[in-house]
Structure formats: structure tokens, C-alpha cells
Design a protein around this nucleic acid. Structure first.
Lengths: 132, 132
DNA sequence: GTAGGAGCTGGAGTGCACTCCAGGTCAAGC
DNA sequence: GCTTGACCTGGAGTGCACTCCAGCTCCTAC
């Protein structure tokens, strides 16, 4: 199964421009081409794009994704380094999740605060209306 | 208690340049100044900076933080909108945490994979050594 | 055969959030 | 009184990750 760049964009959630950009900077291999010179993405290509978007979503910088992509080409001898990259990145992600949770608590606290203010104001309005 | 810009930077975790930048774009109120024209941050200022960094850590864009900051100046009439901003932002943050968790699973899976490959290679090495 | 639409390339432009710089002021210590 | 170091200002520069553009080719459908 092959996909045009438009289909690949839709399935990967990336834009057409981004797909060409990723290719240009060496994040993805140049896909096959049809007789007219148009890109034909394979299921394999899409799987790799899917993995890349996971890395991006989790905030991995592109230069590191590129290092990973290049290691992939050098075969199994680089598996150690690739594993290390993912391992360290996972630790980063976990830490970021923890940070976000901490920030969530602050947000909860603030929101609760606003809700209390609202309740108080609503109460005062009731009192005003009753005494009017 | 007051703080020089260097102290404020250290306590907030922001750089001196960033503090001045935030002031310039209206994210923080211009702090007091000493007789020599130098900034003197108050505990209140630091508390606000602390809250801002929570918002930034959670990915709120600066233009939205600025809207929030400006609403704060307009008094309690804007509390509803401010609450709304935080409320929506909290939903964003929760969603992002969920996304990160999903990505973590993919990472776990990949890392496990690499570990298995390593184990297999180690096994082969043992066999080779034994037969040597 | 021609109009339209998808895709192509190389290169320029964008938005965001800082970050750096030159040239100056000010207060303290020697 | 002079050096030093922290701080000041307005403005320019940076890095990242795209995003857009002009001008072209190719295929399809009428």
C-alpha cells in the first residue's frame, strides 16, 4: 500500500510542508516516487512518521530525533546509543509529567479560589435583592 | 522584603533578561525602584512571577498570560473571564498529560524491544565464547 | 488541446520566546 | 578620584520548527 503526500499528511497529522521539511533535514528517508516524480509513502514510512510524532509530542528536539534517525541507518551496532536516547528521553517525559501535575495543583487551587469569590458575590447579590 | 533583579532572577528561575522582557511586554508590573533607578522586586512580585512560571511550564502562550495579567488590573469584574482562562488551560494541561502518557507507553515498548535485542546478542556472545 | 488540480523545487518568511549587545549610570571600596 | 561590578536602556540578534511562495511539471477530465 502506498500513499500520496496528501494522504501521508492526513494519516500522520503533519502538514505536507512538514513532511517535505522532515525529508529535507534528514528525519525521514526520501520516499519512493511515481513515474511523474511524486512521492509515494509506504506503510513503513507512515509507521516511522508515527513514531516521530510521538517523539515530537513529547518534546524531543529535532536535532536529537535526527541523530536517532541517522543511527537507525547504521544498523544494529548503534542499538545501544538509540536505546540510551529513548531511555533518557523517557526520564525527561516522566519528569515533565510530574511538573505538569504540580502545576495542575496550583491551577486547581486558583480555580477553586475564583469559584469561592463567585459564590460570595452571588450570595451578596441575593442579600441585596432581598433587602431591595 | 525586597529583591534586586539578580535575586529575583535566582528565586524565580528566570533570567535577568527575561524579567526585563516580561516587564516590557506587560506581563509583570514595573517593580519599585531604588534611589539609583534599580528595580526592587517585592514578595508580591515574586509570587506573581512564580505563578507565571507555572503557566509557562504548562505551555500557556505569552499572549494569553498577558491577557490574564491585564484582566487582573481591571478588578473583580474580570474574575469570570480569568477563571475561564484558567479553566480552559487546565483542560489543555490534562489533555497534554494524557498524551504524554500515551507516548510513554510507546517509549516503554521500544525500550523493552531494545533490551530484548541486547539480551539476545549477549546470549549469542556467550554461545560463541563457549564454542571458541 | 486545454483548464485545473496535485505535486515539485529552492529559497524566503514567520512567530515565538527569549537572549545578547553597546553604550551609559550609579554606588561602594580602595 | 578611580576602578569595579551591578544595573540601566533601546534595539538587534538567535534558535527552533515550521510555513509560505513563485514558478515549474505532470496527469486527468472535459
Amino acid at each position: 500500500m502506498t500513499y500520496s503526500i496528501a494522504q501521508a499528511a492526513e494519516r500522520s497529522g503533519l502538514s505536507i510542508d512538514t513532511l517535505r521539511y522532515y525529508e529535507r533535514i534528514g528525519l525521514v528517508d526520501p520516499p519512493a516516487r511515481d513515474s511523474g516524480g511524486r512521492r509515494l509513502y509506504s506503510d513503513n514510512d507512515l509507521a516511522w512518521l508515527g513514531f516521530l510524532t510521538k517523539l515530537r509530542t513529547t518534546g524531543m528536539p529535532i536535532r536529537l530525533m535526527r541523530e536517532y534517525a541517522q543511527l537507525r541507518h547504521k544498523g544494529s551496532a548503534t542499538a545501544g546509543r538509540r536505546k540510551q536516547i529513548l531511555f533518557e528521553h523517557r526520564a525527561d517525559v516522566r519528569q515533565r509529567i510530574a511538573e505538569l501535575h504540580a502545576c495542575l495543583e496550583v491551577l486547581d487551587c486558583k480555580i477553586t479560589n475564583y469559584a469561592e469569590i463567585e459564590a460570595k458575590m452571588a450570595g451578596q447579590q441575593l442579600i441585596q435583592e432581598a433587602s431591595a
